[in-house]
Amino acid sequence: MKIKWFDLLLFILPAFFLYTIFVVYPFISSIYLSLFNWVGVGAKKYVGLKNFFDVLFGSFKGEFFNAFWHNIYFFTLVSIIEVSLGFIIALGLATQIKGYHIFRSIVYLPNVISMVLVGFIWGLILNPQIGLVNQFLKVIGLGSFTRPWLGDPSLAFNTIIAVNIWRHLGFYVLVMLAAIINIQPDFIEAAYIDGASNWDIVKNVIIPLTIPTAQTLILLLFIWSFSVFELVYALEGVQAGPFRSTDVLGTLFYRTAFGGLGSGRMDLGLGAAIVTLMFIVILPISFIYVRLVERRRI
């Protein structure tokens, strides 16, 4: 259909305008700000690429890479566990077990709860003295397995990842389930008639046909892994304790740009440089993802 330019603009401008102002412009402006030193008031001081130098090679290097590798570790562990476990649980649901609808709803339930509240709820459960987890271990006679789950630097980040999986797994289950259900039932019927076992069907039909979905999920997880913030904030605070063992770029960035006691340095320009680097890291993946979204017409 055809439309006059005036009408066209009337329809698209509100969304175009708000989206540009609140999403596109801030990204561009972040890159610009990364070239300055600025505390938010007074004059900006142009420093060129010095912020990037500080972050990558200079005085901020240690803190930055500590957080950066935590993000990468988070992505690696979470994508392996959530996608594979999600697939297995989806297979379970796809057998049309009794109570399928109820199980499906329960599996997804944690996803509708605010991330920061999930953190606080688990903060109580994981309390070393009186939290449910350690109390339970004592009751069933495994008292020697009690740990300060959030207080031990070698355990804390894995604990946070576990809570994260509790919160998100249902999403991966249901996306994988959707992919499984989209398979032509005839394929599977035909395989059964040829005498294939369940394992054959999973291996030769279901896995190959759901791999594209798993790949898309991993792309998304990579992008999302760089916005981790709430769980660390709720369970360990902005200092990402103990001893920065749970620090991620989100909390590092928050301390740098918006303060918080004990931040190495407070500077909006330095914060913007951290964000710009995150932006550069996810850019290729984002590009691939957007092309997938456009071409597949999901």
Binding site: P26, S30, W224, F226, M278, F279, I285, S286
Partner: peptide
Amino acid sequence: AFPARLAIIP
């Protein structure tokens, strides 16, 4: 494909 929170400073 870009978490809006990354652009919080501006």
